[in-house]
């Protein structure tokens, strides 16, 4: 019992996930700033931001639904946090059983849905457009994301357990691209395009609600990166785990720096017509056991 509580609250749960999620975000911002020949914020900036947000007040716009606006960040945070339980981080595996890949996928969808609902509940036209885009983006990246996870799932009995995907480079590639989409980072930051819709679903959010969302985002970052390290890069001891995670963070920050934003229709087409089929090739190979 003590162990379960430790897993959930300290490692790899709340504390570690929050800490590393925000740290990754800081690293991401620092790396892309250096690549853009800027100084960039300190690595600890997301922590400062979070503390500041938690100490501010919540503002509900006149058209907004306050109850839903409070509930959505909690659901998003809870969904992201629960997903950690199923991912064996550095050998800690509180809930490892066959089939838990599907639960992780469900929880991540719940997270995105709460984002979309949050946009609608805020009663702003920017929020509404942002929500529509959030859902369209979900339908886009979810296809290659699920396919690539199922590919590895076939090898591990649909359990999130360490696996080195050296035979499935296409699945790994598809997974990486859909992770970037899932985090709505460039070139897929369509839902929160500040040049068009001023930040998307979260435009009306402030204070602790926004703080919860940003923490949920950080935790999701940690979940996705950990998922990639475990399912595709073979996990490992704590040092190796972190080294591999940082490698993925660097890959994501390079993508963040070198691309312009695609339009939502272009994003959809890219995921379904290019990335998806690539992932399918590896899925078919996994199902029929065809190795090179």
């Amino acid at each position: 019992m003590i162990n379960e509580i430790f897993f959930l609250l300290v490692f790899p749960g709340l504390l570690a996930a929050g800490f590393f999620g925000l740290l990754y975000e800081g690293i991401l911002r620092k790396i892309s700033a250096r690549m853009q020949s800027r100084v960039g914020p300190p690595v600890w900036q997301p922590f400062f931001d979070w503390v500041k947000l938690m100490s501010k007040e919540n503002i509900t716009p006149r058209n907004g639904v306050g109850f839903v606006m409070t509930l959505c960040p909690v659901i998003a945070f809870a969904a992201a946090l629960s997903a950690i339980v199923f991912i064996p981080v550095a050998g800690f595996s509180p809930a490892g059983f066959p089939g838990n890949v599907l639960i992780v996928i469900y929880l991540l969808v719940a997270y995105t849905l709460s984002f979309a609902v949050a946009g609608w509940a805020s009663g702003s036209p920017f929020g509404s457009v942002g929500s529509i885009r959030e859902l369209t983006l979900l339908f886009s990246y979810e296809f290659p994301f699920i396919v690539s996870l199922l590919t590895i799932g076939f090898m591990t009995g649909f359990q999130v357990s360490p696996f080195l995907a050296s035979h499935f480079p296409l699945a790994f590639f598809a997974f990486l691209v859909s992770v970037i989409g899932s985090l709505s980072l460039p070139p897929f930051h369509v839902p929160d395009a500040e040049q068009e819709i001023v930040g998307g679903p979260l435009v009306e959010y402030s204070g602790p609600r926004l703080g919860m969302f940003s923490l949920a985002k950080a935790v999701k970052f940690w979940v996705l990166i950990s998922l990639g390290v475990v399912m595709f890069l073979g996990g490992g001891t704590i040092e190796w785990f972190l080294i591999k995670s940082f490698f993925l963070v660097i890959v994501v920050s390079i993508a963040k720096t070198v691309f312009a934003r695609l339009r939502i229709d272009q994003t959809f087409r890219l995921f379904w017509l290019v990335i998806g089929p690539l992932a399918l090739i590896d899925l078919i190979r996994a199902v029929f056991g065809i190795w090179v």
Binding site: M35, Q36, A260
Partner: peptide, 16 residues
């Protein structure tokens, strides 16, 4: 224009 299409890297480089 770079910034407007979400390509901040172009923005920072050209600005420099």
């Amino acid at each position: 224009a770079g910034h407007t299409i979400g390509f901040d890297t172009a923005f920072h480089y050209i600005w420099r």
